[in-house]
Amino acid sequence: MRIGELSERTGVTRRMLRYYEEQGLIASQRCSNGYRDYEEPCVDRVQQVRGLLDAGLPTQTIRRILPCLGPPGRIDIPNPTPETIALLERECVRMSQRITHLTRNRDAMAAYLAEVRRAAPVEPATAQSAR
């Protein structure tokens, strides 16, 4: 499939797909006209990459663990090196710290929103329906 179809099927922009390829996260073949051609499993791979990026992993870490990821939901690390284990442990700690910060920020925002709603004057129903 061409890059446009991969973009449509994954919701990832063409520009980001090219970046993933530059980073070694996905691969394509080149057609005689120079167009990129992606195999069907690339759809799952892009979704895995997107999920790992959304989780906060940097691309260099993703590149190291991608060979361990099979189809979605399956991880296969037959002989993990101590470096790979240490890398994953560091990422887990970093993610836990990020979750703690995000939770604190969400709670502060929710408290602020609750206070704004409590202090906001309630408009009469007739004024709202006139809009």
Rank of each mutant, 00 (worst) to 15 (best):
M1N: 03
M1R: 03
I3T: 09
G4Y: 02
E5T: 12
L6T: 00
S7G: 09
S7L: 13
S7T: 08
E8L: 09
T10G: 04
T10Q: 08
T10P: 03
G11K: 06
R15C: 09
R15W: 03
M16Q: 09
R18G: 00
Y19L: 13
Y20W: 02
E21F: 03
E22F: 01
Q23H: 08
Q23D: 07
G24C: 11
L25D: 01
I26M: 05
I26R: 00
I26A: 02
A27K: 14
A27P: 09
A27D: 13
S28F: 00
S28Q: 03
R30L: 07
R30A: 09
S32V: 10
N33W: 05
N33R: 06
N33H: 07
G34C: 06
Y35V: 02
Y35G: 01
R36V: 09
R36H: 03
D37M: 11
E39W: 11
C42V: 12
D44N: 15
R45Q: 06
V46G: 01
V46I: 07
Q47K: 13
Q48P: 00
V49I: 09
G51V: 07
D54T: 12
G56S: 06
L57R: 04
L57W: 00
T59Q: 12
Q60L: 15
Q60D: 10
T61G: 02
R63K: 14
R64H: 08
I65D: 08
L66S: 11
L66T: 07
P67N: 08
C68L: 12
P71Y: 06
P72L: 10
G73E: 00
R74Y: 02
I75P: 01
I75Y: 02
D76M: 06
I77Y: 01
I77C: 11
I77Q: 11
P78C: 02
P78M: 02
N79D: 15
N79R: 15
N79T: 15
T81Y: 04
P82E: 11
T84C: 06
T84H: 05
I85P: 12
I85M: 15
I85A: 13
A86C: 06
A86W: 01
A86L: 08
L88E: 05
R90L: 04
C92R: 14
V93S: 11
M95P: 05
M95H: 13
Q97R: 14
I99G: 07
T100K: 11
T100W: 12
H101K: 12
H101L: 12
H101E: 10
D107T: 04
M109T: 09
A111W: 06
Y112E: 13
Y112N: 15
L113W: 00
A114E: 04
E115K: 11
E115M: 14
V116F: 03
R117D: 06
R117T: 07
R117W: 05
R117H: 08
R117Q: 08
R118I: 05
R118Y: 03
R118T: 10
R118F: 08
A120N: 05
A120S: 02
P121N: 01
E123H: 11
E123L: 13
E123M: 15
P124G: 11
P124C: 15
P124H: 10
A125W: 12
T126R: 13
Q128G: 10
A130P: 04
